[in-house]
Design a protein around this nucleic acid. Structure first.
Length: 763
DNA sequence: CCCAGTGTCTTTTTT
DNA sequence: AGACACTGGG
């Protein structure tokens, strides 16, 4: 059967495309045409007589869903295959069967910050003292539990973990308050659906029947709940088709379980396995670098990547003296290429490990007048002014939403302070009603003074007026909110520059609402609109049509490709990230992250480090990432940047062998001055000196020093903690303190006058 | 109750 | 550096 669906496909790809019934695992290396295979397979299934309505394709991001949807539509224009993210899929099931898990259909979806509010409240109601934990950490632990299908009542504290006992106490209360507010957090959406399927076998069977063919993209990123979900819908009809690449699993930190893909063949009988190893994206040089790196991971399924592309240029590695120079050099190179007509701005991407690094590159590009776009940053829907407006809308849609109530009751300020809100909350809790209902009874709450009660009553009146509009088009509802509450007037009256941009954002929100109304002439409910907003993210609107250099994190880069890629700041502490050093599993994930970055490049790839990096308002000395030593250096182009010194590979090994363990970001040379004298002739030897400082053994005979004899980036020794380096100092005289980074990884602060800190150098 | 000023801590990544 | 929580004066 040769036809257009199979045209131009490799035999492995055809093999996968022509598989209709039964489980299939497609192990797809980077750039191996995975999306093409999936979409062609769907088209093939349709052609083989499967109904559109029996197929559902699940992805993680909206971006991926959109991409897949449009490609399916192109291949099979008449089809109505449901392509959705996991969360949207679950959102819809939850609406339909909300009663099974104690929700109303108009439930609210809380984002991370909303959930955190509820959690804080729950911690208060349970009167849990937070001596050794932060709400964020507890939230993370709860999220972990939910991702692993541990229901509140089933959670058991682990004596080895201090957080877990807090979680045991607060998790049920947190969950109770979410339900009371008729709200769910992101994790709930998945967990509740999985729970629903577990507890209602007949529903499970019906949905299994309905969704006979399930396709899961990026299967290596699924967590336990997602696994349970798709598994339970693939019992009578085990037509589960999963695609993924264990080497590109980079979401372990949010519960993704690599075992799901590694053990897939054990989970189902007669699994068809197809490996897509031919790469259509990159040059052999780039692939070789990727391959060498990932070869250092132990937990993986071996794949051999190959391509028939021409060799291409060697991958470059550049070592710069300062982060400033690194940024300058990159911007200059881009500008040159563009000026020469070799490339367009859109051909370039700059990848970094953390968002906070973007600034330097941004500035350099701006100076060169090169257009660029940053993917990520503060998300539109998370901005204060937007959340305020939507807060009212959320409360209208779900009057039990206490978080929304708390957010808007005094926005803009109308004399309802903390104490008043607290009293309303207590009253609500005591009577088992929502805070809005408590507000309606404000006049009868004894503890409230008259003035507060009047202010609250006023708020309720405003709210009720807005509520009348609930069935109007969304744009009208939002418009009513803006005028009734005085929010618009507040921003209009101000000539603060920030308020002007806020107003612009609000106008953008209104136009998005208009767009929504237009798209949904019949079913455009406020409920739908809010769900939409809760589940999108600005990265989804990443626009490839614009001719701009792309700046983004390595995580955001997954699934994309660019002709010329720069990966910057490949330094210990950043990549691998310092928080990923505890376990081998985390380290392997960092390595995969670098692998993902490398394999985004089509033609040219440049890796770089800077010996000295400005980061978070500090200037740090850096150590090159250990990953750089895992690359095939003989195949690469190792260069000194701008003719300056770059260490030879031998010197690098020396540096790297020195520190016991990972000694990242040693030292700091004071605060940043505007014009750094990075041209000083000696600056190139800094890294080596730093390292050498560290090897000098502890000199036990060092005399006790006066506080003023300590200085930044000095090597010190402490009787209990051992060798370390001063990374920051503050205070004056007797209160003079030093923050010391020890080789053990600990960081401690000492008041110098009282500490046992000595100089570590023998001089 | 509100505001401004200070101190602390961070975010690695996202639905 | 910047966001955020907390403090104390108005």
């Amino acid at each position: 059967m040769t036809d257009s669906l199979f045209e131009g496909l490799t035999s492995a790809q055809r093999d996968a495309v022509s598989h209709v019934d039964g489980p299939i695992l497609v192990l797809a290396g980077p750039g191996s045409g995975k999306t093409r295979v999936v979409t062609h397979r769907i088209a093939y299934m349709l052609r083989s007589g499967v109904y559109s309505s029996q197929i559902v394709a699940l992805t993680f991001t909206n971006k991926a869903a959109q991409e897949m949807r449009s490609r399916v539509e192109r291949l099979a224009p008449e089809s109505t295959v449901w392509v959705s993210t996991f969360h949207r899929f679950c959102a819809r099931l939850l609406r339909a069967y909300s009663n099974l898990v104690g929700l109303e259909p108009n439930y609210t979806i809380y984002d991370t910050s909303d959930s955190l509010q509820i959690l804080k409240r729950a911690l208060q109601t349970e009167e849990i003292s937070m001596t050794h934990a932060t709400p964020e950490k507890v939230a993370k632990a709860i999220s972990w539990a939910k991702n692993n299908m541990v229901l509140p009542e089933r959670y058991e504290a682990n004596s080895a973990n201090a957080i877990s006992s807090i979680v045991q106490d607060v998790y049920p209360e947190y969950q109770r308050q979410l339900r009371a507010a008729n709200a769910v957090d992101f994790d709930d959406m998945l967990m509740l659906v999985a729970q629903m399927l577990q507890e209602n076998p007949e529903l499970r069977a019906a949905l299994d029947e309905r969704f006979r063919y399930i396709l899961v993209d990026e299967y290596q990123d699924t967590n336990l709940v997602q696994y349970l979900l798709v598994r339970s819908l693939s019992q009578q009809h085990p037509n589960l088709g999963v695609t993924g690449d264990p080497d590109q699993s980079i979401y372990g930190w949010r519960g993704a379980n690599l075992n799901n893909i590694l053990d897939y063949e054990k989970d189902f009988d007669q699994v068809k396995v197809v490996r897509l190893e031919q790469n259509f994206r990159s040059t052999p040089n780039i692939l070789s670098v990727a391959d060498h790196l990932i070869g250092h991971n132990k937990r993986r399924k071996k794949k051999s990547l190959f391509t028939d592309h021409p060799t291409g240029k060697p991958v470059r590695f550049l070592s710069y003296v300062t982060s400033h120079e690194e940024a300058q050099a990159i911007a200059t190179r881009i500008a040159t290429y563009v000026a020469q007509g070799k490339r367009q701005p859109r051909d370039f991407a700059i990848f970094y490990r953390v968002n906070a690094l973007s600034r330097a590159y941004e500035e350099a590009l701006r100076q060169q007048g090169i257009p660029y776009m940053i993917v990520s940053g503060v998300e539109f829907y998370h901005r204060k002014e937007i959340k305020d407006v939507l807060g009212y809308a959320m409360l209208v849609n779900n009057p039990r939403d206490d978080v929304a109530f708390t957010r808007v009751v005094n926005t803009p300020t109308r004399g309802i302070g903390k104490t008043t809100i607290l009293k309303l909350q207590v009253h609500a809790l005591d009577h088992g009603i929502s805070m809005l209902d408590a507000a309606r009874e404000a006049g009868m709450i004894d503890s409230l003074n008259k003035r507060a009660a009047v202010a609250v009553a006023k708020f309720v009146a405003i709210f009720d007026r807005i509520s009348l509009k609930i069935n109007q088009p969304v744009e009208e509802i939002l418009g009513a909110i803006l005028s009734e509450t005085g929010l618009r007037a507040q921003y209009e009256d101000s000539d603060d520059e920030e308020d002007v941009s806020r107003l612009e954002n609000i106008d953008e929100l209104l136009s998005s609402a208009r767009e929504f109304d237009f798209q949904h002439p019949e079913d455009g409910t406020l409920e739908q609109y809010l769900e939409d907003k809760a589940l999108v993210n600005e990265t989804d609107e990443f626009d490839t049509a614009l001719d701009r250099v792309t700046l983004m994190t390595l995580h955001a880069a997954k699934g994309l490709e660019f002709p010329h890629v720069f990966m910057v700041a490949i330094e210990e502490g950043l990549l691998p990230h310092e928080r990923s050093k505890d376990s081998d599993a985390q380290l392997e994930e960092e390595r995969r992250l670098m692998f993902v970055g490398i394999t985004r490049a089509q033609e040219e790839l440049e890796l770089s480090t800077a010996n000295q990096r400005d980061f978070r308002g500090r200037r740090m000395m850096t150590v090159p990432s250990k990953f750089l030593f895992e690359l095939p250096r003989e195949e690469m182009d190792f260069q000194a940047a701008l003719g300056r010194y770059a260490p030879t590979s031998q010197e690098w090994e020396d540096v790297h062998d020195i520190p016991p363990d990972d000694f990242s970001q040693i030292g700091e040379s004071g605060n940043i001055s505007d014009d750094s004298p990075s041209n000083s002739p000696s600056s190139h030897t800094r890294m080596l000196i730093t390292a050498a400082d560290m090897v000098k053994g502890p000199s036990s005979s060092a005399p006790k020093l006066n506080p003023d004899q300590f200085h930044q980036s000095m090597a010190v020794i402490h009787p209990n903690y051992g060798l370390g380096k001063i990374i920051a100092m503050s205070g004056e005289g007797a209160k003079r303190t030093a923050t010391v980074q020890f080789v053990t990884g600990d960081q401690k602060k000492f008041v110098l006058a009282y500490s046992e800190l000595r100089s570590a150098s023998s001089s």
